[in-house]
């Protein structure tokens, strides 16, 4: 009985450690940042499509999150993280790191620019989506693998 509990405890410890370990990996970090950007785009998209009413606080939070996440994003591509954990990162990232960083920073600065002039209604949020969406497309075209 005691043995069983100990085994279970050990197992739980290992599993827990496994999760912590995975969360610290650069692949997981950058995937989490992309999810944050995607989630924020979703908030803006719901407003742009009229599924949710315009809300200034939501727009501000979303744009701030996109800017901060895109700024941090290229810091999570160290050598050795080219493969694994279902990464969709293209090897081209490591061959053109400067351009890759510039493209991510463009999303960040475009989000800052939009934030500075603060979209004031549904139509303006839609326009912001187009600007930021173009940044998504440009970078994904070059640096994200098909899945």
């Amino acid at each position: 009985m005691k043995f069983k509990i100990m085994t279970a405890g050990l197992l739980a410890l290992c599993l827990g450690a496994g999760v912590v370990f995975a969360a610290g990996e650069p692949q997981a970090e950058r995937q989490a940042l992309m999810k944050k950007i995607g989630g924020s785009m979703g908030e803006l998209g719901a407003i742009a499509k009229g599924q949710k009413p315009y809300d200034a606080a939501t727009v501000k939070t979303a744009l701030t999150t996109i800017s901060a996440s895109a700024k941090d994003f290229p810091n999570h591509f160290p050598a050795g993280s080219e493969t694994g954990m279902e990464t969709a990162a293209s090897p081209a990232i490591w061959q053109n790191m400067d351009d890759f960083k510039a493209k991510s920073m463009k999303l960040s600065s475009d989000a800052d620019t939009v934030l500075a002039s603060m979209p004031a209604d549904q139509a303006a949020v839609g326009q912001a989506m187009q600007t930021l969406g173009a940044d998504c497309g440009t970078c994904h075209q070059a640096y994200r693998l098909k899945r």
Partner: peptide, 12 residues
């Protein structure tokens, strides 16, 4: 628009 329902975007 290039956006998936989860607001992921097209790649490649």
């Amino acid at each position: 628009t290039g956006f998936t329902p989860e607001f992921d975007s097209a790649g490649g």
